[in-house]
């Protein structure tokens, strides 16, 4: 599995996608912005480009010829996705911390980047992974429909979450108002997000293996 991961990171993923989190993370410095958009760039840019690269380089055939199991192939690919997602979120969190210091006194309309907000981001990527990974592994090379569905799922979640965060005084208070200073509440929201992310991604991985075992490598 480690060799496959190394192969994916060295051959399959352009170095651009390891640098991209710095650029998208820096968007956290835009004052009062809709910060749920920040991790969304991973879904819009990295995934379709990365999967397009695998497809055009015949990665599926290349990897299938080697002494590896299909299970490990999925595990390595899901690991690459998780590594990049975490990179995006961690870098964005660092910029988010700067944001909170820079704009402490500013009244903002959308979610502020407190820990609870990052819980929402984890949940958003959880939905993205759950839709993307099993759909992709129906063929293990066609990524258009899987990416479209997963992006739509993540955007709908982000839209509903942000709308509810504005409309509901309770949620507004919990995420950005007085709740922002409640460490326990914020930590719980973040933890809940991380757990949903881990659970959904694991479920996606299991579903992907089941589907990929049926795939014929043409």
């Amino acid at each position: 599995m480690y060799n496959l991961l190394l192969k994916d990171l060295k051959l399959g993923v352009s170095p651009l996608f390891f640098v991209l989190p710095l650029f998208t993370g820096a968007l956290m410095l835009i004052p009062g912005w809709l910060y749920l958009l920040v991790p969304m760039y991973f879904c819009w840019i990295t995934i379709p480009n990365m999967f397009g690269g695998y497809k055009s380089q015949n990665d599926l055939m290349f990897t299938s010829m080697m002494p590896v199991t299909k299970k490990d192939m999925v595990k390595a690919r899901v690991s690459v996705i998780v590594i990049l997602e975490l990179l995006h979120l961690v870098v964005a969190m660092i910029f988010g911390a700067v944001n909170l210091r820079l704009y402490a006194d500013m009244t903002v309309y959308f979610f502020e980047p407190h820990p609870g907000f990052w819980g929402l981001c984890f949940a958003m990527l959880a939905i993205f992974n759950l839709l993307l990974i099993p759909m992709y592994y129906k063929t293990a090379y066609k990524y258009g429909a899987a990416s479209t569905t997963a992006i739509a799922g993540a955007m709908i979640f982000a839209g509903v979450a942000q709308w509810a965060g504005i409309q509901s005084p309770y949620l507004a208070d919990l995420f950005s108002g007085s709740g922002a200073d409640n460490t326990a509440a914020q930590a719980s929201l973040l933890l809940a997000g991380v757990l949903v992310y881990a659970g959904f991604t694991f479920l996606a991985y299991r579903m992907a293996i089941k589907r990929f075992l049926k795939v014929e490598i043409q």
Binding site: N3, L11, M61, F62, M66
Partner: peptide, 22 residues
């Protein structure tokens, strides 16, 4: 496999380095 190409824009040494580990 004649006619099937993998990672054509990579150098031989990069590709070999990924393959030999397996």
């Amino acid at each position: 496999f004649g006619g099937v190409d993998f990672y054509t824009r990579s150098k031989l040494k990069t590709l070999t380095d990924a393959i030999r580990r397996f």
